[in-house]
Each structure stands twice: as C-alpha cells, then as structure tokens.
Design a protein around this nucleic acid. Structure first.
Lengths: 247, 247
DNA sequence: CAAGCGGGTTGACGTGGATCAAACGCCCCA
DNA sequence: TGGGGCGTTTGATCCACGTCAACCCGCTTG
C-alpha cells in the first residue's frame, strides 16, 4: 500500500480536511473521488485530543458522533458487573470508533486511549445527511460497518475455536499487517497495550500471554523485549494458525 | 465437496409486502411510518425457501442481497482450514442475514437453515438507493448493522470472560427473550440446533453443553428433554450470570 | 539514593473443560 | 417390526490454561 503524495499537515488547524489527510486510504474516504472527499471536509468537525488512559467515551454516554483515529491508538472494552473486562478491539490510525452507539443512541462499550491520541469527530447526524447525497460515502460507510462485523466474527473464531498459541500468533500477524498498512515495519513494532489487555482481548490470562511470548522466542519465531516485538519467522507464525503443528 | 444446489427462486410470485407483514416490529421496518414502509414494499423482492440443512449462502458467494428471515431459523458459521467450525450466530424470524457480505462484495460466512425456512430477499443496491431517499429507512438500517456489532461484542464477552455454565445461562436467557419477542412462551421452547452447534457457538464441546444442561436440571433451574427446554427458575439462571455463585 | 510501583517473567500446582469411551433413546426407513 | 444411525447422556481420565506466588526490571518520586 503506497502512500499518497506527502501533504504537509495543516498547522494546528482545528479542522483537518479529509482531502488533505494522509490516512485517506485507511479511513472513511477510502475509494471516494476527490470531489466527493471535498464534501466530507465540511462534515468532519473538530479534532479531539485524548491523553493516555483517558476515555474517548464510556458505556452509557449519549451517542452523537463516530470518531476516526488520527494519531495514537485505543482499546474498546466491556465490563461485567463483577469487574471482569473483555477488550473487544484495538484501534489504530484511520480506524473508526463508536459504531456501537448507533443501535441505542448510547455507547455500549468504553473507548480508552492507549497513548496520547487524536481523533476526528464525525457528527453522526451530519454523516447520515451527507451520505443521502453522496452515494460513494454511503457505500463506504456501509463497508466500514460491515468490516467491523466481519472482524468481530474473526475474533469469535479465535476465542471459540483456537488454543492459546494460535490466538497469539493470529494477534501478532494481524498487528503486523496493520502496521504494514500504515507504512511501518512489518517485522518490528511496539505494542501499546499491556499483557493483561492482550490477554483480555484473546480470552487468556496475562501469564499465559507472557509464556506464549517466551515460547515463541525460544522457537525462534520472534524476539521480545517488553513491548518491543520483532518477528523473525512470519511463516512459522502462520503455520501455527494452519494447525499443521509447527511443521 | 458437493455441488452448489442452485435453489430455483421459488417464484411463488407472492412477494410479501412489509406493510402487511406481522414481523414489522422485529425486522427492518421497525420504527418506520406506514408511508415509508409502503416504499419498502417495492424493494423487497421475491421470497426464497430454504430447506433444512441447505445453505442460504456460502463463504465466497457474490454478495448481492441481504435477507430477512420470515419463517424458520438459521445458523451462520465460519470454518477453519482443519475443519473446526465456529458458529457465529443463530437467526430467528425478523432478523437480518448477510451483512457480512457488504465489506468485500462476497460473503465471509455460511448461512445454513436449521429447519425448513423462508426468507425475504432484499437486493442491497436497491436498499442503498431507497435509503438515500427515505431517511427513516437509512437510519433503521444503520441501527440494524450497529445492533449486530453490539451483539457480537456480547458474544466476545461470553467467549472471552465467562465460564461454561455462565455461557449456557446467557444463551438460554437470550433465547427465551427472543422467543418472547415473537409471541412464544418465555419459559418453554424448542431449540432448533444440536448440542454441537450450541457448543460451537459458546466455545464449548458438546459434552460440556450436555453436562451443563444436566446440572441445571439437577438444580431445578430447567427441565430438559432433548431439544425441548422448560425454564423453571429464570432468576436462578440470571443469578448465575451475576456470578453471585448460586447464592 | 532509597523506596515504591506497575508491568513483566517464571515456577509450582490446581482445575475446568476437553478427550476418550460406552451406552441409550428417538426417529427414519426397509 | 426391527435395525441402523444420529444425537445425546454419562463416566473416567487427561491436560491446557488458570491460579498463586516469588522475583525482576525500569520508572517515578520524595
């Protein structure tokens, strides 16, 4: 995935134009014509900064906007009464947050910044209005929602049918692909979440995650130093998924 | 590998009008005005019968329509290369199938009838066109997609953070609520899926599902006779979920 | 500089659910 | 009417992952 011509980021302009944004290929405007994207510019309102560990929204908050991650990253989670946490996803730049709120006009999960981050606010009423006029926007938005559903099915597969090492391998491969799409190294990256958060996402305890990392390292698949991951044998990781037990 | 059984669209001409359908409250038209629903009538094309164990669509099939279940019920599943199956959902009358296909213009899961069933075919291109004109339809459709996302998060919670009996209790409560919404008894119903399918959905083996049923019966929470379930103590089931260990 | 702390690793041990195995009951069909 | 097969139940055993606990490391703070 090649980056578009580098465009100087608008200097602290409160509104960031989609038409000038280098995340176009990853975000809502993907596949839209330049003309259509210009119309999006009018819609995407202010940006909002969210500091590490702060909530972008919480369960029960009134739903008004969806958000596109510009910089940084987030996790979304759901809490059970007794305190158990289920992380439902990690979101990186260009990805859309808040779709859960549409169904009941209130958010049904929490969105928390994993690092100092920055989102574009997309007022949902305006998005619906504009997407009645701009067919490509309408279609693209539907694709974004559908992609979220497909992603969730993948996670269900992972949680319901895979063993610990398969889950972690799938997670690492997924992270690698998403970093690659953003122009970062496919083989070397920095995880923003803790072992506990990874574990919650994968339906495992943090000790199990840690042990699986260690085992991967022993087997020469990766190198781990705290949150810094280097993938040494991506095919080996992928083989774990095919359940050809480490041919 | 069996050849695609190209089910001839049962002409049956009788295209059912949403405006005349008693599933309105559960289906896409929910919340729309009578006038707006009349417009939907033009859109919902033929119906299609699907016999028990037949596919409504398969992974890889071109995406053209979404479907509303009229009678009967379905499961959706995803398969891993080595044959492991993950059931991603069960769909009852009024519920929408096929949203997974929007993202890539091809279906990403299989939809299989659990009994002889009957769906309304909603050509997606037409739906997008009409929902550019009918605001209430647009909004309702977005809610349907969002509800699916929220539902998936619930399943992730279940798979990632709950123990076997909690999962089954959640499943039974959910089924009971959905039967109730359709005018059936909340306390007594007939499951259309096997123990294995329930297990796949809940991330458990069929033996574990069976044992949990038996344990619930011993504790006076339910009565089980094969697929026939009678709930005797709904509060007891709900208590299992709050993880107040059977006070 | 020490003390405290959050995150991570590692070991010893326990257990919930998987696996293996046998038998049963319902239903379809010859 | 009897047989065969699928779905289900139940018991015995196993093991992957959870739990508990000790310790390490890098940061922060007084």
């Amino acid at each position: 995935m090649q980056q578009r011509a580098v465009v100087p980021i608008t200097v602290e302009g409160l509104k960031t134009a989609c038409s000038q944004c280098n995340l176009q290929e990853l975000c809502l405007p993907f596949g839209m014509s330049d003309g259509d994207i210009d119309q999006l510019d009018a819609l995407v309102g202010a940006r909002r900064k969210v500091k590490r560990h702060q909530h972008l929204y919480r369960v029960g908050d009134a739903f008004e906007s969806i958000y596109a991650v510009r910089t940084g990253s987030f996790k979304t989670d759901v809490l059970l009464e007794d305190g158990r946490e289920q992380v439902t996803g990690f979101q990186m730049s260009g990805e859309i947050l808040g779709l859960d709120g549409i169904s009941t006009d209130a958010h049904t999960c929490n969105a928390i910044a994993l690092e100092d981050s920055d989102v574009c606010i997309i007022p949902f009423a305006n998005l619906e209005t504009l997407s009645r006029e701009v067919e490509s926007l309408q279609h693209q938005f539907h694709k974004v929602m559908s992609r979220e559903i497909v992603r969730d099915h993948g996670v269900m597969m992972l949680l319901g049918s895979m063993r610990a090492e398969e889950r972690l391998a799938a997670f690492l491969i997924n992270m690698s692909q998403r970093f690659t799409a953003r122009g970062f190294s496919a083989a070397e990256f920095h995880l923003r979440m803790t072992r506990e958060e990874i574990g919650s996402y994968l339906g495992l305890k943090l000790e199990t995650v840690s042990r699986a990392f260690s085992r991967f390292q022993e087997n020469g698949l990766i190198t781990v130093q705290q949150k810094h991951i280097r993938i040494r044998d991506i095919d080996g990781l992928k083989a774990l998924l095919s359940h050809l037990p480490c041919v």
